[in-house]
Nucleic acid binder design. Structure first.
Lengths: 220, 220
DNA sequence: TATAAAAGTTAGTTTAGACTAACAAATTTA
DNA sequence: TAAATTTGTTAGTCTAAACTAACTTTTATA
């Protein structure tokens, strides 16, 4: 009953594209270009997945995941994000290196491996890009990822990722005393240049708007 | 230039079978049955690998790995054994569960992943089965794996694996205070029943021959 | 609403890597 | 050494999953 790597890729793409598009229904060409394949290839694979009741056909070339298809897609996303977290936190990979390897690792079939890895990492809720990690049931925190520049004064938030992953920026971030999961309190914003004052570990720091735009947080 | 999973499996099988057989030359049928495939399948794949100069044909259906083929096979074995070590030591897998998952993980392509994993594990020299882990260059400790029952009195050795992996046996092993990499000094052997006295952490313990046969060690 | 453009489908081909069946060459044994 | 047995090869078929080219259907626009 195990799916091939290719079948899994289609289910995951269908899930991601429908989230992105904000609709359950995704067209053949859309899926094909999402995977970098010809529409004809997507069409025949989707028909095959329809036979396996993982996908449902919905007139005029639109496709939807069935509950089972969605469940599998979420498990793939779970595995992908857990592996990214592992690579980042345990093996010293950088933010931009994790995706490519996780793309391979997500196709390893072993229920035990996933659960043990999750436990080993301390049941993380977000990956190094700040995206939520679904649990065994496929449930995840639907947080709206904000940039630090969008946080209102007075709010307390937590750093979950950065947009700019250049060595220079990461260096600056850590000099300020910030790291993944750091608590940040937004003290004040100056209207003049949108620069902000933040409180980190009791210390107060000034950062530019450009800096704030490159830091992803969730309000806690 | 990356090989497929199938191509990699053939190279690894060829390496393992030739070590096992004690000769570089391995026959078509031998490889086929090692992989559980029909001889015709092996024949055509080996021809393909010959074109890629990873395998060399040697009259009457005998095949040998080229230097490059051997290098790749050793890297696969390195990856396999590092992953086994990871699963065993970090994710609480048991001795008998690691192989199947490592069989998948060994095909992940990422040089960085292997080297970081090796570092994370502290550059282990043996996997949980007591088999040596080749280094980046493919070199490994060619130790003769002994059972505790073969160690001469006076010798000091190190536990590297157990043969019997039943819960009952593992329980007994840990009750005695033994674990992977434990130091064991062989104090004495009684001719009567081949039971032995060993010294573990300064304490002296008596174990039966049956016990000693199920413990793999290397003399240090 | 007719037509152009976009989107989707069908048919036929290709490649990787299995398979079976038939055949050829080596090796063993009587 | 001839026959029997084992071992290896060739030829042709099958499936997964891609491709291109041609065709059809739907949607958008003049």
């Amino acid at each position: 009953m195990d799916l091939t790597k290719n079948e899994e890729d289609y289910l995951k793409a269908l899930f991601m594209l429908s989230v992105e598009a904000g609709t359950e229904l995704v067209g053949t060409n859309h899926i094909a270009s999402g995977l970098g394949l010809a529409p004809a290839s997507a069409n025949s694979m989707l028909k095959k997945l329809t036979d396996k009741t993982l996908v449902h056909y919905e007139k005029h070339g639109k496709w939807v995941l069935t509950d089972e298809g969605k469940r599998i897609a979420l498990q793939l996303i779970r595995k992908h994000r857990l592996w990214e977290t592992f690579l980042y936190e345990k093996l010293e990979f950088t933010w931009d290196e994790v995706h490519e390897v996780a793309e391979q690792l997500e196709h390893i079939h072993s229920k035990k491996l996933v659960e043990k890895l999750d436990k080993f990492l301390g049941h993380p809720e977000f990956d190094p890009h700040g995206d939520p990690i679904p649990n065994e049931k496929g449930k995840y925190k639907a947080v709206r990822k904000l940039t630090l520049s969008e946080v209102p004064p007075g709010a307390v938030c937590k750093l979950i990722a950065v947009k700019d992953t250049s060595a220079a920026f990461l260096q600056y971030v850590s000099e300020i005393g910030l790291g993944i999961r750091s608590q940040i309190k937004l003290v004040d914003r100056r209207d003049f240049d949108n620069s902000i004052s933040i409180e980190v570990d009791g210390r107060q720091v000034q950062v530019s708007e450009k800096f704030a735009i490159n830091v992803f947080v969730v309000v806690v």
